[in-house]
C-alpha cells in the first residue's frame, strides 16, 4: 500500500530520526485493530491451545483420576479407530454432496430468476426462505413433517406415483440429511450466483447474440467463465459452513443408526458430551482443525485473490 503521509512529511536524512515517528505511526495504525484482534485470539486461539493440551491427556470426565499425560497415544488410537474414518468419510460426503448439488440447483434457479417475468420478486422471496428458516426448525420439519413414514408429506407425494412408503431417516439416513442440507443451502448458492449473473456486462451478451451465438453457446462460453469466481467463492464459503453441520444430524438421526450418519462434529460431540472422553474427543478436534486449515487456507488464498485484486484498483 502507499506510504503514509505522516512518514513522508518528516524528511528522513538520518535513520534514528525517521524511525521514531514511523514506529509510533505503526502503533497508531495498530491501535484500532487491537481490541478485535485480542478478543478473537482470546476467544478462539486460547481454547484451541487448551484442546491441544487435553488431547495429550487421558481424561474421562466421569473418572477424575484418569487425568494423566499420555503423549500421542490418543492420536494413535484415532487413526486405528474405524468409526473415525467412517465419520470422516461421511463429513466429506455431506460437504461435497451438499455443496455440489446445491450449486447445480443454485445455478439453475439463478438462471431462471435472471429474466423478467410476472412475480419475479415473489419467486425470489419464496426461493430464499429455506435458508432463513432456523436450522433446528428445518431439521425437525424434515425429520417429522416431511420424512415421517406414516403421515409425512414425502411418502404421500411418492405414493401418488405408486412408490411404496419408506422410513426415510432410518433406512436412508445419509440421503435424508443430505436432502435437508441441500434444501437449506441451495438459496445461498442461488443468491451469490444471481449476483454474478447480474454483474455480467450486457454489451458482451448482446455482441454474442449479434454474432449468432445460441443461448447455450452464450452460457458455456461467456456466462460460465464469468461466473467462475462466483462459483469458487460460493463453494468455499458454503463448504466452511456445511463441514460444521451439526443441527440436522443431531435432530434428524442422532448420527444413527449406530454411527452410520454421523459426521466429525457430531462424533466428537458424542465422544465428549455423551462418552465424557475428553482426551479422545480433543485429539479428534485437533486432527479436524489441522485438516481444515490445510485445505481451506489453500483454497482461500486462491479464491479471494481474484476478489481482492479487483477491489483495490
Amino acid at each position: 500500500m502507499s506510504t503514509s503521509t505522516g512518514a513522508a512529511r518528516t524528511g528522513r536524512p538520518r535513520k534514528s530520526r525517521a524511525q521514531a515517528p514511523r514506529r509510533s505511526d505503526a502503533w497508531q495504525r495498530r491501535l484500532p485493530l487491537l481490541p478485535a484482534l485480542i478478543f478473537t485470539i482470546v476467544a478462539t486461539q486460547i481454547p484451541f491451545l487448551i484442546t491441544i493440551w487435553y488431547s495429550l491427556r487421558s481424561w474421562n470426565l466421569l473418572n477424575p483420576a484418569s487425568d494423566v499425560f499420555v503423549g500421542l497415544s490418543n492420536y494413535i488410537e484415532i487413526f486405528a479407530d474405524r468409526t473415525f474414518r467412517q465419520v470422516a468419510m461421511n463429513s466429506v460426503i455431506y460437504t461435497l454432496g451438499c455443496v455440489l448439488i446445491a450449486m447445480v440447483l443454485g445455478i439453475l434457479f439463478a438462471l431462471l430468476l435472471d429474466r423478467k417475468f410476472l412475480g419475479r420478486g415473489v419467486v425470489r422471496t419464496l426461493l430464499i426462505t429455506p435458508f432463513l428458516i432456523m436450522p433446528v426448525a428445518a431439521s425437525t420439519l424434515w425429520s417429522v413433517s416431511m420424512f415421517n413414514p406414516t403421515f409425512g408429506l414425502v411418502n404421500w407425494f411418492l405414493g401418488i406415483f405408486g412408490i411404496p412408503a419408506v422410513d426415510w431417516t432410518s433406512s436412508h439416513p445419509v440421503v435424508s440429511i443430505l436432502i435437508a442440507l441441500v434444501w437449506q443451502w441451495t438459496p445461498f448458492m442461488m443468491l451469490l450466483i444471481l449476483a454474478g449473473l447480474q454483474s455480467q456486462p450486457k454489451d458482451v451478451l448482446e455482441a454474442a447474440q449479434m454474432d449468432g451465438a445460441s443461448s447455450l453457446q452464450t452460457f458455456f462460453f461467456i456466462t460460465l467463465p464469468h461466473l467462475r469466481r462466483y462459483i469458487e467463492l460460493s463453494v468455499l464459503l458454503g463448504a466452511i459452513y456445511v463441514v460444521n453441520t451439526f443441527d440436522q444430524i443431531y435432530l434428524m438421526t442422532a448420527g444413527g443408526p449406530g454411527t452410520s450418519s454421523a459426521n466429525l462434529p457430531y462424533y466428537i460431540y458424542q465422544r465428549a458430551f455423551l462418552g465424557f472422553d475428553i482426551g479422545q474427543a480433543a485429539a479428534m478436534g485437533v486432527v479436524v482443525v489441522i485438516a481444515t486449515i490445510i485445505i481451506a487456507n489453500f483454497a482461500l488464498r486462491l479464491i479471494f485473490k481474484g476478489f481482492m485484486s479487483t477491489e483495490q484498483n
Binding site: R29, L37, T44, I240, I278, G285, V289
Partner: peptide, 30 residues
C-alpha cells in the same frame, strides 16, 4: 489506514471461522 501485513490479519480472522466449533467446545465448557 492499514496496518502492515493487512492480508495476514484478514486471513487470520477468516481462518478462525474455519475452526470447527466442536474443537473448542471442551475447553470452553470446562
Amino acid at each position: 489506514r492499514p496496518v502492515e501485513k493487512t492480508k495476514d490479519v484478514l486471513f487470520f480472522f477468516i481462518s478462525t471461522k474455519m475452526l470447527p466449533v466442536v474443537a473448542v467446545i471442551m475447553p470452553i465448557y470446562v
